[in-house]
């Protein structure tokens, strides 16, 4: 389980020219490691995450998810990679209003072609892992912001991903709840052995990370090992 980005460059059209969002970025995250990527707004953090999530093709460079190179892969193959090897924790929980907490996780089995009903035990297990076992049948509007974010995290782990990509998970939470969410992600990273990339602009939660790299104007500093 690992995520490898090598010399990745990504540009966007910008008027008559092009804006460089990522400039020869390299990042290697082994399994069981929580790598934090910090930087101010507009520095390229979200672009880095989008490339790692196979949602954007870089102009150049290579991306390998769990050892699988993604450049040149067809959209259907990328979708398969996302549902089987990548877990995404969105900045906002992005839960589906019609589904209960457990069903938010079961839907991951459904989009992978497996019967959602049979996935319920695993969904309940993960909800228990994030402390929501007794709220499994609640819909999002009856959950707090922190609870929704925990469902979001549990959903990302539902298909046992090799790579976990976490996008600003504490942006809508107060400090205490944000710290709890970061601790949860760190714990699950070690328990599940995922290669986790945590993108954040909040430097207050970096103690939980194994690596910290800073992105500025599309360039990534060499990751520093913490602790």
């Amino acid at each position: 389980m690992s995520l490898e980005l090598n010399e990745v460059t990504l540009t966007y059209p910008d008027g008559d020219g092009r804006l460089t969002a990522l400039d020869r970025v390299s990042l290697d995250v082994p399994g069981g490691t929580l790598a934090a990527v910090v930087g101010p707004s507009g520095s390229g953090k979200s672009s880095l995450l989008a490339v790692a999530a196979t949602l954007i093709r870089p102009d150049s460079g290579t991306v390998a998810v769990d050892g699988v190179r993604v450049e040149g892969a067809a959209p259907a193959r990328l979708a398969e990679l996302r549902r089987r090897r990548i877990g995404i924790v969105f900045q906002q929980p992005n839960l589906l209003a019609s589904l209960t907490a457990a069903e938010q996780l079961q839907v991951m089995a459904q989009i992978d072609g497996r019967p959602p009903r049979k996935a319920r035990p695993r969904a309940l297990e993960l909800l228990e892992a994030v402390g929501l076992a007794d709220l499994a049948d609640r819909r999002p509007h009856r959950l707090s912001g922190g609870q929704r974010q925990r469902v979001n995290i549990a959903r990302a782990l539902m298909n046992d991903p090799a790579v976990l990509l976490v996008d600003e998970p504490t942006s809508a939470l107060d400090h205490e709840r944000g710290a709890a969410v970061i601790d949860l992600i760190a714990r699950l990273t070690r328990e599940q052995g995922t290669a986790t990339v945590l993108v954040t602009h909040d430097r207050g939660h970096l103690d939980a990370a194994d690596q910290v790299a800073e992105v500025l104007d599309g360039r990534l500093t060499a990751p520093a090992t913490t602790g």
């Binding site: 259907a76 979708a79 996302r82 995404i88 989009i111």
Partner: peptide
């Protein structure tokens, strides 16, 4: 639309 975007990001195929 936003739900569909989330499901696609999570790996749901367009056909499904």
């Amino acid at each position: 639309g936003p739900d569909v975007a989330v499901l696609k990001a999570l790996g749901a195929s367009t056909g499904a």
